Computed example of a mutant assay.
Amino acid sequence: MKIQYGNFLIRSWEESDRAAAADVIHSVLTEYGLLWEPEGADRDVLEVEKFYLDAGGEFWVVERLGRLVGTGAYYPVHRGEKAVEIRKMYLLPEVRGQGLGKYLLHQLEKAIAFLGFQEIWVETASVLQQAVKLYENSGYKETEGVETTRCDRVYVKLLDLIPGK
């Protein structure tokens, strides 16, 4: 999978992306005072094959001029009807504010809908104010059931509410 957005390339994760993707996520977490948890919440980015690819999900990276500047992923979860969870949606500070996050989220939603999933779940932390605003402005409804230690918010979106589906 490859999608062009301005001077960004959104593409499927490759094994050679492991360290750079982990660095992006670690950097953004640190920026917001959140802990990098390689044995816990972030183990999935170190074992993409197991947690995403083998589980029926996808892990994408965002490149600009050959450098990884963002990530976004999803995998099936047992939370509702044919549900997935969007995870690891992080962008480095220098690429924020250009509509990339909104575009990436929309592309993830399209891929998820195409596969026949009916619900999208996402967990985040209140300190990630831009992410909270993005999800709320994109039709995600806050609910209960946070499962990730560093997160304090969980949202769900029913796919039949996605425009154009």
Results as ranks from 00 to 15, higher is better:
V48Y: 01
V69G: 00
E39M: 06
Y32A: 01
T148G: 06
L108D: 03
V62G: 07
W36A: 00
D160A: 05
L9Q: 13
Q98D: 03
D42S: 11
L115E: 15
P93Q: 03
A20N: 08
G72V: 09
G139P: 06
Y135A: 01
R96A: 00
W60G: 00
A131S: 13
Y103K: 13
W13K: 00
Y140H: 02
K165V: 12
P163R: 02
L159Q: 06
M89C: 09
Y90M: 03
R43F: 09
P163L: 02
A41E: 15
Y155W: 05
G97A: 04
R79S: 12
I10S: 01
Y52C: 04
H26A: 10
Y32R: 02
V45F: 01
L92F: 08
E81I: 14
V61E: 02
E37G: 06
F51L: 01
G72F: 04
Y32Q: 03
G70M: 04
K2P: 08
G116A: 04
V146M: 04
R150P: 15
L105E: 01
T148I: 15
W36H: 02
Y140I: 00
A21C: 14
W60L: 08
E39Q: 13
V132G: 05
L161M: 10
C151A: 15
V48Q: 02
G101I: 02
I25W: 01
K88F: 08
E81W: 12
L9G: 04
E58C: 10
Q4G: 08
E136C: 05
T71I: 04
D17V: 05
A83Y: 10
Q98Y: 05
Y140G: 01
M1Y: 11
G66D: 13
W121Q: 03
G33I: 02
C151P: 13
F59W: 09
V48I: 07
V84R: 04
R11C: 05
D152H: 13
Q130H: 10
H106K: 13
F59V: 08
I86L: 03
S16C: 07
D152V: 12
Y52D: 05
G97L: 02
E47G: 09
R64M: 13
W60C: 01
D17T: 09
T124R: 00
R79M: 15
D152M: 11
A19S: 13
W13S: 01
H106Y: 11
G80Y: 03
W60A: 00
I3T: 14
A113C: 11
T148W: 07
V127G: 05
Y75V: 07
G101S: 07
G66M: 07
I120W: 04
R87A: 14
Y75E: 04
G57W: 06
M1K: 12
